[in-house]
Design a protein around this nucleic acid. Structure first.
Lengths: 107, 107
DNA sequence: ACATTGTATTGACATCTATCGATGAATCAT
DNA sequence: ATGATTCATCGATAGATGTCAATACAATGT
């Protein structure tokens, strides 16, 4: 610890647990494929998985892997109707994330 | 492409380039250490590097690596004054990110 | 029952990344 | 100049992760 420049222990804007939780949520959205999937789902009421493979252009296991991650993060929720799974965005989740990001800059 | 459930090509909410750019910015913030560093910087006017090692509790090369990534993403900017580098948050950047996230849900 | 279709899981592989020790470059004090 | 200090860079390593082929599971239809 140097001498002349350093203040006290700082105002601890974000503790370890909060940083880990927020980082985990951000990591879920930090993949281009997941972003596109979430964007497709969140901009519609409901999206069938069969409507994801086309635009996203990835294999079926890859899509399943990404939707599972988005669901585990609480960003989307899936409902199985018949053979297909229909996805919808969890309301308010993107809003909460946006305000969390804004709060990073508040003392 | 299945038959009964699938619509047309979807409303293309996010093209590949936009998804890659946003994902890259989110990836920059998807690390707990970087989140804490950015939080410390963004909640103050200016923060010296010597005020980061203490709260973050990582080695000096690790801190340097993270500040470099935050700076490359345009989230912080560093000014060298004498021996120390002083960091400040780029104004508006967190705001832009927050609105980008909110736009994901808009048709 | 059997075949078909949509989805999830497993295993393997390649790539990326966070971390740190060692070293180099730049700045200041004496 | 010499030494001390601050920061960046390099090399190495361990862990995480995106991707897909193969396979298993679930639901529907014949």
């Amino acid at each position: 610890m140097p001498a002349e420049c350093c203040d006290e222990a700082s105002n601890e804007a974000l503790d370890d647990a909060a940083a880990a939780a927020l980082a985990s949520l951000l990591a879920t959205l930090s993949d281009p494929v997941r972003l596109r999937i979430y964007s497709l789902i969140a901009s519609s009421d409901e999206v069938c998985s069969c409507n994801l493979e086309g635009p996203v252009n990835k294999s079926q296991p890859t899509i399943s892997h990404h939707t599972a991650k988005l669901a585990a993060a609480g960003l989307i929720i899936g409902e199985r109707r018949g053979r297909w799974t229909w996805w919808r965005a969890v309301p308010g989740r993107a809003n909460d994330l946006a305000t969390s990001i804004l709060d990073l800059g508040r003392p």
